[in-house]
Design a protein around this nucleic acid. Structure first.
Length: 201
DNA sequence: GGATCGATCGGCT
DNA sequence: GCCGATCGATCCG
């Protein structure tokens, strides 16, 4: 299976968000592989997108998005969750694709371990990776992976798989961006595989 | 099924 | 000092 190269991420962000659907996200930890099909993404595009963290300016946190495409932008939110993005487009233009959900393909047992909280019942398989915070927990993704190149085939990367036909792709506004201006809230920059049960609720 | 709310802390004003 | 690219618990029906 072909590792997606930096050129892939250098494309327009909407193209990257659309084309990531169906591809395989791979996380390798101590030789163990956790694999999931990407089923939901969102695009955050440039300094004028008020939903984009980078619209507030170039800071220590957003610096990664101003850098080269094909790097992980991992940030911490709500005091307890991490979010995984891949940087896109040219150096100097801050943009990224948020991975919102994956369908587990391998390593589900280890994902369960990472998702399980002490003194809680096991996580339902349907809730293993159907959300941006959940998938980061399941794949043990945290800030140590921030700014990692995802084009080397080490630790975290994406491999090409069969594409998804236009008929099977749904498009709509992004989730959780009520703080953005109305135009940016309404932008149809969320992509998901229609009827896939691992798309977030 | 849906609505509501608290958790919990880094980043930014 | 405020708030967030979320989630899970709880209450209601």
């Amino acid at each position: 299976m072909a590792l997606l190269p930096q050129d892939f991420y250098a494309q327009p962000t909407l193209t990257v968000a659309r084309e990531l659907l169906g591809q395989r996200l791979i996380r390798e930890i101590d030789g163990q592989r956790l694999v999931g099909r990407i089923v939901e993404t969102e695009a955050y595009i440039g300094p004028d997108d008020t939903a984009n963290h980078a619209s507030k300016g170039r800071t220590a946190r957003t610096e990664v998005m101003f850098g080269p495409p094909g790097h992980a932008y991992v940030y911490f939110i709500y005091g307890m969750y991490y979010m995984l993005n891949f940087t896109t487009e040219a150096v100097g233009f801050p943009a990224a694709v948020l991975i919102r959900a994956i369908e587990p393909l391998a390593g589900q047992a280890l994902m369960q371990v990472y998702r399980q909280k002490a003194d809680s019942p096991p996580v339902k398989p349907a809730n293993l990776t159907n959300g941006p915070g959940r998938l980061c927990q399941a794949l043990y993704i945290n800030k140590s992976l921030n700014n990692l190149a995802v084009t080397t085939g080490q630790e975290l990367w994406v491999e090409a798989d069969g594409g998804i036909s236009d008929a099977a792709v749904a498009v709509g506004p992004r989730i959780g961006v009520a703080y953005a201006n109305p135009k940016d809230q309404a932008a149809p920059w969320r992509f998901w595989i229609r009827d896939n049960r691992f798309v977030s609720k």
